[in-house]
Simulated assay, not measured.
Amino acid sequence: MQYKNLGRSGLRVSQLSYGAWVTFGNQLDVKEAKVLLQACRDAGVNFFDNAEVYANGRAEEIMGQAIRDLGWRRSDVVISTKLFWGGQGPNDKGLSRKHVVEGLRGSLRRLALDYVDVVYCHRPDASTPVEETVRAMNWVIDQGWAFYWGTSEWSAQQITEAWAVANRLDLVGPIVEQPEYNLFSRHKVESEFLPLYSTYGIGLTTWSPLASGVLSGKYGKGDIPADSRFALDNYKNLANRSLVDDTLRKVNGLKPIAAELGVSLAQLSIAWCASNPNVSSVITGATKESQIVENMKALDVIPLLTPEVVDRIEAVVQSKPKRNVESYR
């Protein structure tokens, strides 16, 4: 396992990480979670991602219980959570000071931790002044409840505004963004965010490297495995949007490239994400120990991604964004 700095910070995170979205609380409970988390640690993973909204808080409870049962030393792992959707009340969601403080307290209680290493703003909040959110994030850091803060699915403009407030008030700005990034979703990472990497030292912990499993190659038109996330009632709309003819045609076009390299399509897709120098960690998901073992082998695929191989991949997916970048300085 390789470890990279999270953006311009001194925090070191594993190049591949594990996220609890979908799985913990929906498909897995504590017993299964312990097996998966230990398999990750055995592979060198030190970064584990969660959110208050995952399984309505149950994902945090499962992760916290599993970590306690496994007896891990707290300093050996990096734990993150995300705040935005905390409940049904008018102040149980968003990025107000009230919800940031109460939401993080709730997350720490469910995780049974004194602090998280990184707390993210899970989405931008148009109804809360960005200065209020920046001040709130700095307050929870000052309390020792988190060491760093970041954003998830924010625009470059919104991140720039947060940094402008932080600089004006001599506060800590967001050091990391968590965007979707895979062979079918590239614009933010490869185009929109380009000025942020050098100006603010933003790191990336990217999610959905397999495009919700589509890039694993296990799905076909009308073919959805019973144990997959697309078989869950909550994800059937996503399945309908994702499993379109053009996407499946491109997935099939990638399979020969993976076969020639002697790797799985999932390993090729994860390696492609991890090879981007601006990506600090690729968040992977898995419901089986065997999937984690296979996913971790993606690190061995990165050296195989020669310019020629990358060009062949581009010719199939045809998703490379135009790099007409606005300046957000």
Results as ranks from 00 to 15, higher is better:
Y200E: 09
G19L: 08
L299V: 04
V176D: 01
P225M: 14
N182R: 02
S198W: 07
D117K: 07
G71E: 13
W163D: 00
V165A: 00
D223T: 10
E177F: 07
G201E: 02
A33E: 02
G10F: 01
G64A: 13
D49E: 11
V100P: 09
L37E: 05
N46M: 10
V165Y: 00
Y54K: 09
L210K: 11
T205M: 14
E177H: 12
V45W: 14
I257G: 12
F147I: 01
I202F: 01
E308K: 15
N276W: 09
S275D: 13
G89K: 09
A271P: 01
L169C: 03
E289G: 11
D227T: 13
P277C: 03
Y235E: 13
E161S: 11
E289H: 08
Y219C: 11
P277R: 04
C40M: 07
F84P: 12
W163C: 02
R109H: 11
E314V: 04
S212C: 03
F184E: 02
N5A: 08
R168W: 01
D117Q: 10
I62F: 09
Q2M: 08
V244T: 15
Y3M: 03
Q318E: 08
Q158E: 13
V35W: 06
Y18N: 11
S275C: 09
W145S: 05
L113K: 09
G103N: 11
H122A: 06
V13A: 07
D29M: 05
Y181L: 00
L83W: 02
K98S: 07
L83C: 03
S242I: 03
D117W: 08
S242D: 04
N295V: 04
G253H: 07
Q2G: 01
R74N: 09
S280Q: 05
S198I: 03
E180G: 02
W72A: 06
V35R: 15
K4Q: 10
H99T: 09
L268Q: 08
S327Q: 04
S281F: 13
D300P: 01
A259I: 12
N5V: 01
P303M: 07
L108H: 04
G150I: 05
C121S: 06
G150T: 06
V282E: 05
A156D: 02
G7A: 07
G213H: 05
G262Y: 13
N138K: 00
I302G: 08
Q158M: 09
I141L: 06
V165W: 00
E61S: 15
D76E: 15
P174E: 00
V118F: 03
R241M: 15
K4T: 08
E326W: 12
Y115Q: 15
V77H: 03
D49S: 14
P256D: 13
I202C: 02
E52G: 15
H99D: 11
R74T: 05
I67F: 15
T160R: 09
R329N: 10
A156L: 04
D29I: 00
V116S: 06
W163H: 14
F230T: 13
L169H: 05
V282C: 13
Q318Y: 00
R73D: 12
L171K: 00
E326V: 12
Q267M: 13
V45M: 14
Y197Q: 01
L95K: 13
K250V: 10
